[in-house]
Design a protein around this nucleic acid. Structure first.
Lengths: 149, 149
DNA sequence: AACAGAATGCGAAATTATCGCAATTACGCG
DNA sequence: CGCGTAATTGCGATAATTTCGCATTCTGTT
């Protein structure tokens, strides 16, 4: 990955908060011409500094009214089994992210479910299996994202 | 939030994977004219179905070589103090997300730091304050995302 | 100090988004 | 059923944005 200067970092910062800014808007904020900004952005895409650009869809629309953090403790022993488990869990539409972590838990998952009952059903269907020794659920009351700045 | 039909859901799905598609591209995929697609997308933005559009920056670039989950336990008492704390933490570039949660912890934060030492410095600078009673750190060994599709 | 490579700004050309408008569709209500 | 209203569509035309070529400026090296 090539070298990035301050302009590049500034652009990445701006676009990571709002990727729909025009060259002109970017130009005013970082002090380059619109064309130079867009050339740099295109380059950032080409070299992979910008992995992708996506729309964040409201959980209300996706049906995810409840966000949950689940700490999964696995039965030790067979890496291939946990691999299969992980892949299975990642296929569930409620699963937004899985972290393999240190500590008591082996996995931390981020879920979005339509309701607590939907989550209860999910746990019954997927968490009471041999590979999983136990799990802790943390309910998210509210989430906060970094602000533009 | 208004009603969304199949076209809207299809658009949301497409844009949540790649928000940089032109009206023409969207039109070919969902079977409407480019103008109709873009009008619908604009409406999805207006009603908040699309919360925002962002660039995903490679962690290699952000310097985020280590991902951490931090469970913060706060000293109870003053909601305004914790509000200020939260806002302060959200301003740190390492902080990617803060969840206000149920359970022993009050906040769960997702951090990306350049190194464990950088994280140690961050804890020393920000976690040893009156508002924070204690914290637990979970190191992410690897993260997994759902596949598109 | 000279040179080569890279990046810049400017303006033209191409692509894309937005707007107005007439026609079509969807739908509630008499 | 049929009418009328409101919403949505497609089709240009217009406006905005991006992309490109090119001469110039900046950078770093020998």
């Amino acid at each position: 990955m090539d070298h990035l200067d301050e302009f590049d970092r500034h652009l990445l910062n701006l676009l990571s908060i709002d990727s729909r800014q025009t060259g002109k808007q970017l130009a005013e904020k970082i002090g380059l011409s619109p064309a130079a900004c867009l050339r740099r952005v295109q380059r950032l895409r080409d070299i992979g500094a910008i992995e992708k650009e996506v729309a964040i869809v409201s959980p209300k629309v996706t049906g995810g009214l409840v966000t949950l953090l689940v700490m999964l403790e696995l039965a030790r022993g067979q890496p291939d089994l946990t691999d299969g488990l992980r892949r299975k869990l990642l296929k569930l539409p409620q699963v937004k992210k899985i972290y393999h972590v240190t500590g008591n838990a082996d996995f931390v998952m981020i879920l979005e479910c339509a309701s607590m009952e939907a989550y209860a059903n999910l746990t019954e269907a997927h968490f009471y299996v041999d590979e999983i020794k136990g799990f802790d659920t943390i309910v998210v009351l509210r989430s906060y994202d970094p602000e533009p700045g």
